[in-house]
């Protein structure tokens, strides 16, 4: 009886999973084996791994995703750490989450205004005597905006794992003669590592396939895998190749998941 009942509860989610998760992924894998003239082929994968273009693009995407994740992490960990000790935590946390309620395109367009030749950023640079710089369409501004957008998704899991941390451990560590720094990197950081890993997953994977920002802020000069997929589906109509890149991205994401999960499994043992 209980078994049947739980099965029944699973039906809606099962349908959802089948229709909107498994079926699309299966279709992408299926598409990736077709050439432009609808023949079954492995040529798309051969092209991907043989042509310098796609490998370079992959390298680019991974490199930028890595930088974005790194900067997000560097900003988020201290922020979450300070946040945990503040008095009105819920309020500050709300301020961190607030930007995620605003549409990402609006934020991107706001940055276009800020970074443009006569924008706020350049007015400030002029004011302090450096003079206007080309800010828009540079790699630095692309990474800056992407980091800005991803920060909440990194702070939240880190904050949660810090909040779960039993203060007794910290007190014990300090009582037993460890310095503050030792307490941090021997006790606090290892215990909150799962939060960092969850944050990395939440930031790195979406960063791999960002394409709106590469266009609006990066001016399409850096072509990431996300842009390549868009172009293959809409412009060149080479759906096979677009799907192949999609499959490669999915595999890359599985690898990232596995790497981050394995470690946390081992450390908790």
């Amino acid at each position: 009886m209980t078994k049947r009942k739980t099965c029944g509860y699973f039906i809606p989610y099962g349908l959802w999973l089948g229709l909107f998760v498994i079926a699309p992924v299966a279709l992408i894998v299926y598409q990736s084996f077709f050439s432009l003239d609808h023949h079954v082929t492995l040529a798309n994968y051969a092209t991907y791994f043989q042509s310098g273009v796609y490998l370079k693009m992959t390298l680019n995407s991974v490199w930028y995703a890595f930088l974005i994740t790194l900067f997000t992490g560097l900003i988020s960990y201290p922020t979450a750490y300070v946040l945990r000790q503040l008095k009105h935590r819920q309020f500050w946390l709300l301020l961190v989450i607030l930007p995620t309620w605003i549409n990402i395109l609006l934020k991107a367009y706001a940055f276009i205004g800020i970074f443009s030749q006569d924008g706020v950023a350049n007015s400030f640079l002029r004011f302090i005597g450096i003079g206007p710089q080309q800010l828009l369409f540079t790699n630095a501004s692309f990474i800056f905006v992407a980091t800005y957008i991803q920060i909440p998704f990194m702070i939240l899991p880190i904050y949660n794992s810090l909040a779960d941390l039993n203060p007794a451990y910290i007190n014990a560590s300090l009582d037993l003669g460890a310095t503050r720094w030792q307490t941090f990197y021997r006790v606090i950081f290892p215990l909150t590592l799962p939060g960092v890993k969850a944050g990395v997953q939440a930031v790195f994977i979406p960063s791999l396939s960002l394409f709106m920002l590469t266009r609006l802020i990066g001016g399409n000069k850096v072509i990431t895998l996300g842009t390549a997929i868009e172009e293959h589906f809409l412009t060149t109509m080479n759906w096979g190749m677009g799907s192949t890149i999609g499959v490669v991205l999915i595999v890359a994401m599985i690898i990232v998941m596995q790497l981050t999960n394995d470690h946390s499994g081992r450390s908790s043992q």
Binding site: S116, Q117, D118, L136, R215, L216, G219, N220, K221
Partner: peptide, 21 residues
């Protein structure tokens, strides 16, 4: 040509050119 290219965009060009970007 790519060193001379600042950006490859669509409708936004209007806005950028009007703002002397």
């Amino acid at each position: 040509l790519s060193p001379n290219v600042k950006a490859i965009v669509a409708d936004e060009i209007k806005m950028y050119m009007i703002q002397d970007e």
